[in-house]
Design a protein around this nucleic acid. Structure first.
Length: 425
RNA sequence: GGAGGAGUGGCUGAGCGGUUGAAAGCGGCGGUCUUGAAAACCGUUAGACUCUUUACGGGUCUCAGGGGUUCGAAUCCUCUCUCCUCCGCCA
């Protein structure tokens, strides 16, 4: 969330951010509520001050065994006044807090302005789309030929848009996860964590999914718990309401989790096969850093995610998302999209974002600055490193041969017991 | 699920109705000493909000969270949450 004082002092910056994001929010209303709040606060605090002083006086008088009836009746009147204003302040506080939680982060100045399709900027391309002397199959056909995914039974067990990996398919999924975790822990300096897949409301609010996106998530009503849509939520909230010692920064975590998304309202769009599912696997990267380093940290985070695809020798492109493409909490974001040769489309497998202090404010994650001795908010970042299901799609589609055999990239073979290919069943 | 115990500042830990926003210790910061460092000693060290004549200034709130009693609550009552111990159940 943004600091109220910042909005008060920079209303035009905030308004521009909202406009660039294609959102509609009434900042003037917020500001007038803020003014009203401060007026009332001044009034009620002066009354409280009077009351406190009198109360202390009563204490002193009682000690001296003097009469205090006059003070008591005076306090009674003041208390009545307080009781009239106080509820109004509380109501306004509530309103303000609600409004504040709905205001998005300010996009960084380097973020292209405009609606998503036209304005996302491709900043990098890696590898070449494979050329085939035959018509490449899509992953649904391949999965069938290889007998590695059972769509029918998945929907019997859970419903449509769930996946059941089988045999070498399950093995491949596990290999990818292990390969990515090993890369990030051994080569990129991330600490591995394995967090809960269910989180409470406070955690969901801390990273910014709530209150806006409640209908997009699976929720356990009896316990008010949510299935995580990404490991970003539990991992970022590890340090909620904490002060991280400055010398520990930056802190890097990587985590494998399953991710759960209702995808409400998105039916009918790219819905075939593995592309859009309710449960998928992801290795996530999360960073807590000092403010002045966060945009450099975003670049290295992106490189860490890219490395996965480079080692697997898969063609991809990186886009800098526009003001309308970046998420609510992000100030800057890159997407990595893999080319899937059979589906003939790009698949988003990673989003790498810098949130600045937006999440840190919500979740109250701070560090003490050595120089000034002040408590400051850290900056948080995260990125997928990367999401599978889609990774697996691209892998089998790009590495297919004419008879449907899929070659295993070199980097992955150790994780498949040296297996070099998956043959048709 | 049942029965007990506990939640205090960056940390450990006192306080159990009246200058207690909170002793003490550790840690942090500054200094003395030292060629330098360590040790020792001295000083200093919570946060959020807010006001004004923006000042080494004033005020309000905060001792898990909400509500209550009282002129006055970290301290009493009540509900909620979290943690610990024991029992039950269980992968």
């Amino acid at each position: 969330m943004l600091e109220l004082k910042f909005i008060r002092e920079n209303p035009d910056t905030v308004k521009k951010a909202i406009k660039d994001r294609g959102m509609k929010l009434d900042i003037e209303e917020l500001l007038s509520i803020d003014t009203k709040r401060r007026e009332l606060l001044t009034e009620v605090e002066a009354l409280k001050h009077k009351k406190n002083a009198l109360s202390q006086k009563i204490g002193q008088k009682i000690a001296k065994k003097e009469d205090v009836s006059r003070e008591k009746s005076e306090i009674k009147i003041i208390s009545q006044n307080i009781n009239e204003i106080e509820p109004e302040v509380e109501e306004i506080d509530q309103k303000l807090a609600t409004l504040l939680l709905l205001i998005p982060n300010i996009p960084h100045k380097s973020v292209p302005i405009g609606p998503e399709k036209d304005s996302n900027k491709v900043v990098k391309e890696f590898g070449k789309a494979p050329k085939f002397k035959f018509e490449p199959r899509n992953h649904i056909e391949l999965a069938d030929i290889l007998d590695i995914i059972d769509f029918k039974r998945a929907s019997k067990i859970a419903g449509s848009f769930f996946i059941l990996y089988k045999g070498l398919g399950a093995r491949l999924e596990r290999a990818l996860i292990n390969f990515m975790l090993d890369l990030h822990t051994k080569k990129h300096g991330y600490k591995e964590v394995f967090p809960p897949f269910l989180v409470n409301r406070k955690s969901m609010t801390g990273t910014g999914q709530l209150p806006k996106l409640e209908e997009d998530m699976y929720r356990l009503k009896d316990d008010d718990l949510f299935l995580i849509p990404t490991a970003e939520v539990p991992v970022t909230n590890m340090h909620r309401d904490e002060v991280i010692p400055e010398e520990k920064l930056p802190v890097y975590y990587t985590a494998y989790t399953a991710c759960f998304r209702r995808e409400a309202g998105s039916y009918g769009k790219d819905t075939k096969g593995l592309n859009r599912v309710h449960q998928f696997d992801k290795v996530e990267l999360v960073k807590f850093v000092k403010p002045e380093t966060s945009f450099d940290e975003l670049e290295s985070l992106l490189q860490n995610a890219e490395k996965v695809l480079q080692l697997l020798e898969l063609p991809y492109r990186v886009s800098a998302l526009s003001t309308q493409g970046i998420s609510f909490a992000a100030s800057k974001c890159y997407d990595i999209e893999l080319w899937a040769a059979g589906s003939k489309m790009h698949l988003e497998v990673s989003s790498c974002s810098n949130f600045g202090d937006f999440q840190a404010r919500r979740a109250n994650i701070r560090y003490r600055d050595k120089e000034t001795q002040k408590l400051l908010y850290v900056h948080t970042l995260n990125g997928s490193g990367v999401a599978t299901a889609r990774l697996l799609i691209a892998l089998i589609e790009n590495y297919q041969t004419k008879d449907g055999t899929v070659m295993i990239p070199k980097a992955l073979q150790p994780y498949m017991d040296g297996l070099k290919e998956i043959k048709p069943a």
